[in-house]
């Protein structure tokens, strides 16, 4: 407990990592996220077969030594598809989170720094985006733009924009009244310097927590869209799409529905645990909860 408190002091990131390392659940999160990143990065070398190689003679095989997770209705190796699916999930989520953050955070900063009508206009726009329930906006955008990587990035990032804008605005409002900002103004620093060199470094902590948790949400939305047939076209190895195609033969080959779903859930679990751990480190309100 004392160590946790110490981490939120001025001692910075090194001690924060120390606190994180003592949180067992957060460590499980780190492990799962590392496994996901490692699998995504090394997919072509880790995968025992080509993910879209059709071998009808071995179709619908249960898990065995040759095919650890079994095969699907076309005889494709499920383990290889799960491994390559990690790569797709990684590319989609990293792109979507970065795009959302790149637009949302500056918007939030602008809103909180400028205040007045700018703040009002930006926040009403964000309210309107928040007025679309959960995944609905992403679905509507992909429906309009069509599937594919760029559409997924845009659709997922637009639905996370308001979250970033709000967190960045709140952090900006909290920081901009601090003495060090006034000191910067007194020595004649420009608005750009004040925001980028003075204020931004002090808002990194809450934004990092939001980014980590948003990975879970981006992967979830992307796989939901793929499950609905709005993601990548077949035969792309995609967890959501593979679960959707496993639906029809579930009675005869449950493994085709179990393993991709397990990979997806464990990845989301990893980001959630890591995000929770980081929130505990940075946000004193969450101590002991």
């Amino acid at each position: 407990m004392a160590a946790r408190r110490a981490a939120t002091g001025a001692s910075g990131w090194a001690r924060a990592f120390g606190v994180l390392a003592r949180n067992r659940l957060a460590l499980v999160g780190v492990g799962l996220v590392s496994l996901f990143v490692f699998t995504a990065g090394l997919a072509p070398w880790l995968s025992p077969y080509e993910p879209d190689r059709i071998t009808i003679t071995v179709a619908m095989q249960p898990p065995s030594l040759d095919h650890w997770m079994g095969t699907d209705h076309l005889g494709r190796d499920i383990l290889s598809r799960v491994i390559h699916g990690a790569r797709i999930a990684f590319v989609v989520s990293v792109g979507a989170v970065l795009l959302g953050a790149t637009i949302g955070i500056p918007l939030g900063f602008l809103s909180g720094y400028a205040r007045g009508w700018v703040d009002h206009a930006v926040m009403r726009l964000m309210d309107a985006l928040l007025a679309f329930p959960g995944r609905l906006l992403a679905i509507a955008l992909v429906a309009a733009m069509g599937g594919g990587l760029l559409s997924l990035w845009i659709a997922i990032s637009v639905s996370s924009l308001p979250k970033y804008a709000r967190i960045a605005r709140a952090a900006m409002l909290e920081q901009r009244e601090r003495d060090y900002v006034y000191a910067g103004q007194v020595v004649g620093e420009s608005h750009t310097v004040l925001v980028s060199r003075y204020i931004f470094p002090n808002t990194v902590a809450p934004l990092t927590v939001a980014l980590t948790i948003d990975f879970a949400s981006a992967i979830l939305i992307a796989s939901s869209l793929s499950f609905l047939g709005l993601g990548f076209p077949p035969p792309t190895p995609d967890w959501g799409a593979d679960l959707s195609s496993a639906m029809d033969g579930m009675e005869f080959m449950p493994w085709a529905a179990i393993f991709p779903g397990m990979a997806l859930s464990l990845t989301i679990l990893g980001f959630n645990l890591l995000g929770d751990g980081m929130r505990d480190v940075f946000d004193p309100r969450h101590y002991d909860q």
């Binding site: 499950f227 579930m250 989301i268």
Partner: peptide
């Protein structure tokens, strides 16, 4: 709570269909 937030609803649905329906 953590599992409920991490398991996508379509996978939960598939598993429940597998167990309770099939």
């Amino acid at each position: 709570a953590v599992l409920g937030l991490s398991i996508p609803n379509f996978w939960l649905g598939l598993i429940l269909i597998l167990v309770f329906s099939l």
